[in-house]
């Protein structure tokens, strides 16, 4: 295998589908990406792009049925997670990789105190006594800077504010010092000032513990602040990958370009927003050829018939790939 020593997670040609009453929804169609130790990969996409489903498949928490992994490999430190037994996977989950969810209130158990939920990690995975686990829970709450941790350890999720609940989620994720954290829209439900607090905390812990991070988001601002590299998803496929600095300066896919031009920016005023026309496709009926062609300003006949492969753009920088027949035009157009 060609993976580097540092590669923590390597997803290869992943296909996930949902078998619904209306037909087969192709949620993930051949996604490949990798994360190195200590690296942050941002997966950017709108609702229905397959970014969360990919994460669920990695964590092994896909709802089956209706969701099925139809094809692909998920290599975690060289071992394929998809070939493991349910019991083996459970040992990986929590201890080696953990997930932070968007909505902390529904991700936490409302009838257990936060101390019990945090401590459970140590009881189940490390075989600690409840008493010791509680001490560790308080330490964790201190670590994610929840004030008065000792007093609040017995409280229930509803007694915490949104930002504090998200800190508890983070505490739970880092409890066993995993190598990989998947954060699915971790700050979407939070106010900006609280979002800034949470993102800062996450970045600090990630540096300290040298964790790999997959940051799933639709927010181009959050990505620009936190990511090392980016994968942009559209209709279940990766349409562009790049180092974070490259993609904002010179997008190589018309979808990325459209996204960048359609967001209002705090530091720029009076620019006309050029919206991407139309809507993302239904996953039950993904258009033939390039899935983006009905909305694309560069679309030609070939885009309607031939699905573009993920071209390697060596001249545009390392790790740069674009699934567009006309990536050259896209790059060039932006440069002038």
């Amino acid at each position: 295998m060609t993976t580097s020593v540092n590669t923590l997670l390597d997803v290869r040609d992943l296909h996930v589908e949902f078998r619904t009453r209306e037909g087969v929804a192709k949620a993930v169609n051949g996604v490949s990406y990798s994360v190195d130790a200590g690296e942050t990969l941002a997966v950017l996409g709108e609702s229905g792009s397959g970014k969360s489903v990919t994460a669920q498949a990695i964590m092994g928490i896909l709802d089956t049925p209706p969701g099925f992994v139809r094809h692909g490999e998920i290599l975690f430190k060289g071992t394929d997670l998809l070939r493991m037994s349910a019991g083996e996977r459970r040992k990986v989950r929590g201890a080696h990789m953990a997930m932070i969810f968007q909505d902390a209130l529904s991700a936490l158990n409302p009838v257990l105190s936060v101390g019990d939920q945090l401590g459970e990690m140590f009881v189940v995975h490390r075989g600690m006594s409840r008493k010791d686990a509680k001490i560790r829970a308080v330490e964790l709450m201190d670590r994610v800077r929840i004030p008065a941790a000792r007093e609040r350890v017995g409280q229930y999720p509803h007694q915490f504010s949104g930002g504090m609940r998200q800190r508890i989620m983070i505490a739970m994720a880092i409890a066993l010092e995993p190598e990989l954290i998947i954060a699915d829209e971790p700050t979407t439900a939070l106010d900006v000032t609280v979002q800034a607090q949470v993102m800062e905390l996450l970045a600090e812990l990630r540096r300290e513990l040298r964790m790999g991070l997959i940051l799933i988001t639709h927010d181009l601002g959050v990505v620009a602040d936190a990511a090392d590299k980016i994968a942009v998803m559209y209709a279940g496929r990766i349409v562009e990958t790049a180092h974070v600095h490259e993609i904002y300066r010179r997008p190589a896919h018309p979808y990325t370009k459209g996204l960048l031009e359609s967001i209002p920016r705090l530091d720029q005023k009076g620019r006309q927003l050029s919206a991407i026309k139309g809507l993302p496709p239904s996953l039950l009926r993904i258009p033939p050829g390039c899935a983006f062609h009905p909305r694309c300003p560069l679309a030609q006949q070939v885009c309607r018939t031939d699905e573009p492969p993920l071209y390697e753009l060596h001249e545009a920088g390392p790790g740069r790939r674009s699934a567009c027949h006309f990536w050259k035009e896209c790059l060039g157009e932006h440069g002038t």
């Binding site: 930002g163 800034a196 602040d225 705090l266």
Partner: peptide, 22 residues
């Protein structure tokens, strides 16, 4: 200052006022 700017250029130098508490 809490609003993330969609431009990674110079993100290390950006000064942030982080508000504490809720």
């Amino acid at each position: 200052s809490a609003v993330p700017v969609p431009d990674p250029a110079g993100r290390e130098e950006r000064e942030r006022i982080i508000l504490y508490g809720d």
